[in-house]
Design a protein around this nucleic acid. Structure first.
Length: 700
DNA sequence: TCAGCTGACACTTTTGAAGTGA
DNA sequence: ATCACTTCAAAAGTGTCAGCTG
């Protein structure tokens, strides 16, 4: 099956390094230098050179230009300076801040898929102690990795570059049995989000380019409840949904206290009424004072409805403190008055619009936190923050993920060393310590209403080579397939239609094992699940399945097992086993064969694509086999790294976590894509996109 | 005993359907 | 009939808190 492995920055292959060092970046926008430089220094010369891609010169050039910028970098830095915490819940919680990115350097006419994955930064578990985060033990075994596919994917470079790319729909969960396709993480562990840009010829094939980006300031520690008050304040003041918790909000501490008092007051009043409801009657008040109180008391005890002889509330009899009722009432009134005053004041000051921004500014000012200043890299003196992550240069614009390099020169702050993801150099060395086999599942949410124009149609239209041939097709192709993917093991045999059919890489080259750490356990197989895209009338599942079938035949059963050779990250090497089949298929359907060498260089798509979808064109379906031969793919990232010569790192290396799209040779491609449509078929629409767990089960 | 997790809560924002008018 | 705009209710996203669990 198609496999894609993503390794931490450290594990980046030559091309990554090339991206890091050779892609020109504006002088004012330094790339993430520290780490890159450091790593570079320690890397063998050959790694520093741009990846030789003779067959795809243009592709390389293009690759070098690809740049990603973290648009809300300043916000991230504010959090990072304090020690970013991300709430994870059973049902899934969005990240805040979210990843807002700007992409440039893409070929406007080529299609790309954007992926988000989150990898552990180290093998430690943390605890918030003494105002800071301390490593208190070893990390829990890694859970199956999942990758969030941006809802707009695949879309043209023009699409991605014309707007801010947001991954705010991605959710984090600590539910290891999550069936929603959310990214599963362990609480109290440190993670680093990564964004991958993958060129895709169409939904069925990988393109030739791939780029990974890491923004150190986006590192975070997962929690089920905020530990650091500063983080809480920042979140409340930055997140619109938490506006109610601001001082001027209706859910502020003050208001909550007021409500609490109100409740108590109401309860008290209720009790009061219950105890002396009839007290309204003046007659009761006029009752003879000499009434036998003992009898009354007895009567009250036995008959609650009976009016209290005293016809009044007796504090001493109430369940509340003696003076509570009165005090509560006064306090309530006082709080209300105060609230009203505050509200009025705020209302006068409040101006529509920039509310959040203003709040942020206010917060920053009020907090007077050094960390909030522009000197982001400098960790706040405050002990409350967890080890500051290696901070990038002020600029958040990065080229492709630098490989190992990532060690951040900046000194980590006690109490714990804050290993930078980037720093983990081919730390793959650490990979050996990876707890368990990793599986990465791609979740392809149904595209939520995009703030921007709808994603480019996946399939090119045959009408014009330059223009998108597929625009006639509904916004998203919904290859609704139901193929279920068996969780790929190290051998990469997932039963379902794999991502392979979705993302095929022509001429994928076999991945090389990264330097020495590769233990089979490190391997992670990624399952690519495609969301159910809105059912596209034009799309025929049958076709898809048909297209996939050839692939099945092409895959020898176990040949795809990730070589667990000495290499740390056995990689999937389809070419060897599939070459023959590929050639055959190519001969059969020449038009469908992508030209690897020209893939990235030419803006146009292979003329055949539309034909791949019968509905649109009777032309022969695309032949997935080709993908396997595609040279450049995520998996290659680490392959070239020398196993024996990891770059020096200022931080402890952590295991590399490969992301792998794996097509199981055993998978029955006859049922490809079937699960992709399962959602609609089963009527489980997901508000923000449907998720499909490629590993073993269809989500939704 | 306590750290960590869970679910309910109240609030806010977002989303989409329904209604209205040009 | 179509389109643009407004209104409204439901859904979803927040942090907080009390209670539960191991």
């Amino acid at each position: 099956m198609l496999s894609v492995e993503m390794f931490p920055g450290l594990a980046l292959g030559p091309q990554r390094i090339g991206d890091c060092f050779y892609r020109e970046a504006p002088a004012h926008l330094p790339l993430f230098p520290p780490t890159c430089d450091v790593s570079a220094a320690g890397l063998p010369p050959r790694l520093l050179a741009p990846p030789p891609v003779p067959s795809e010169p243009t592709s390389k050039a293009q690759k070098d230009e690809v740049k990603m910028e973290l648009e809300n970098s300043s916000l991230w830095k504010q959090f990072s300076s304090v020690g970013t915490e991300m709430i994870i819940t059973k049902k899934g919680r969005r990240m805040f801040p979210g990843l807002r990115l700007k992409l440039s350097g893409l070929n406007p006419s080529l299609r790309y898929i954007l992926l988000l994955d989150i990898v552990p930064l180290d093998n430690s578990r943390y605890r918030f102690q003494g105002g800071g985060w301390q490593a208190v033990g070893s990390a829990e075994a890694r859970l199956p990795d999942r990758v969030f596919i941006h809802p707009d994917s695949p879309a043209t470079g023009a699409h991605w570059q014309s707007r801010t790319i947001s991954f705010h729909y991605a959710k984090l969960t600590n539910n290891t049995l999550d069936t929603q396709g959310h990214i599963i993480l362990h609480s109290l562990h440190r993670y680093q989000p990564r964004v991958h840009v993958i060129e895709a010829r169409d939904v069925l094939r990988w393109g030739g380019g791939q780029h990974s980006f890491v923004f150190p300031e986006t590192q975070f520690i997962t929690v089920t409840a905020y530990q650091n008050n500063k983080i809480t304040e920042l979140k409340i003041n930055s997140n619109p949904f938490a506006k109610g918790f601001r001082e001027d909000g209706m859910n502020s501490k003050k208001q909550r206290d007021a409500r609490q008092k109100r409740k108590i007051a109401v309860l008290t009043e209720t009790l009061d009424i219950e105890n002396c409801d009839p007290c309204d009657s003046t007659e009761l008040l006029q009752q003879p004072s000499d009434t036998n109180t003992d009898l009354q008391a007895l009567a009250l005890a036995s008959l609650p409805p009976l009016p209290d002889p005293s016809c009044g509330f007796r504090p001493e009899e109430a369940s509340y403190p003696d003076t509570q009722p009165l005090d509560l009432g006064q306090a309530f009134m006082a709080s209300q008055m105060t609230d009203i005053s505050i509200t009025m004041a705020n209302g006068m000051q409040d101006t529509a619009g920039s509310e959040v921004a203003n709040n942020m500014i206010e917060r920053s000012d009020s907090m007077a936190e050094p960390a909030f200043t522009s000197s982001f890299p400098a960790p706040p003196p405050s002990s409350s923050s967890f080890p500051s992550a290696p901070l990038p240069q002020p600029s958040s614009s990065f080229s492709s993920l630098p490989s190992s390099d990532t060690s951040d020169p900046q000194p980590s702050i006690p109490p714990i060393d804050y290993p930078s993801l980037l720093s983990s150099s081919p730390s793959l060395s650490a990979a050996a310590t990876t707890p368990s086999l990793q599986q990465t599942s791609f979740t392809f949410p149904t595209p939520p209403p995009s703030n921007s124009s709808s994603p480019q149609p996946l399939l090119p239209s045959s009408s014009s080579p330059s223009s998108n041939p597929y625009h006639a097709i509904p916004e998203t192709i919904s290859p609704q397939t139901d193929a279920s993917f068996a969780a790929p093991s190290s051998t990469c045999h997932s039963g379902q239609m794999s991502a392979q059919s979705l993302l095929i890489q022509p001429n994928q080259t076999l991945q090389q094992e990264p330097g020495g750490n590769g233990s089979p356990s490190d391997q992670s197989s990624a399952n690519l699940s495609f969301p159910n895209v809105s059912p596209s009338p034009a799309l025929h599942l049958q076709n898809l399945s048909h297209q996939a079938q050839p692939l099945t035949a092409a895959f020898p059963p176990s040949s795809f097992a990730h070589p667990s050779s000495s290499l740390p990250h056995p990689s999937f090497q389809p070419s060897a086993c599939l070459a023959s089949s590929f050639q055959q298929s190519a001969g059969t359907h020449p038009q469908n064969l992508p030209n690897p060498s020209s893939s990235s260089s030419t803006p146009s798509y292979p003329p055949v694509e539309i034909g791949a979808i019968p509905q649109f064109n009777p032309a022969p379906p695309y032949r997935p086999e080709m993908v396997l031969h595609h040279p450049s793919l995520l998996p290659q990232l680490d392959s070239s790294l020398p196993s024996s010569t990891p770059p020096p790192s200022l931080y402890p290396a952590f295991p590399s976590y490969p992301l792998r799209l794996c097509q199981d040779p055993h998978s029955s491609l006859s049922i490809p894509f079937r699960h992709l449509y399962r959602q609609h078929q089963h009527g489980h629409p997901h508000p923000q996109g449907s998720y499909l767990d490629m590993s073993t089960r269809a989500v939704f």
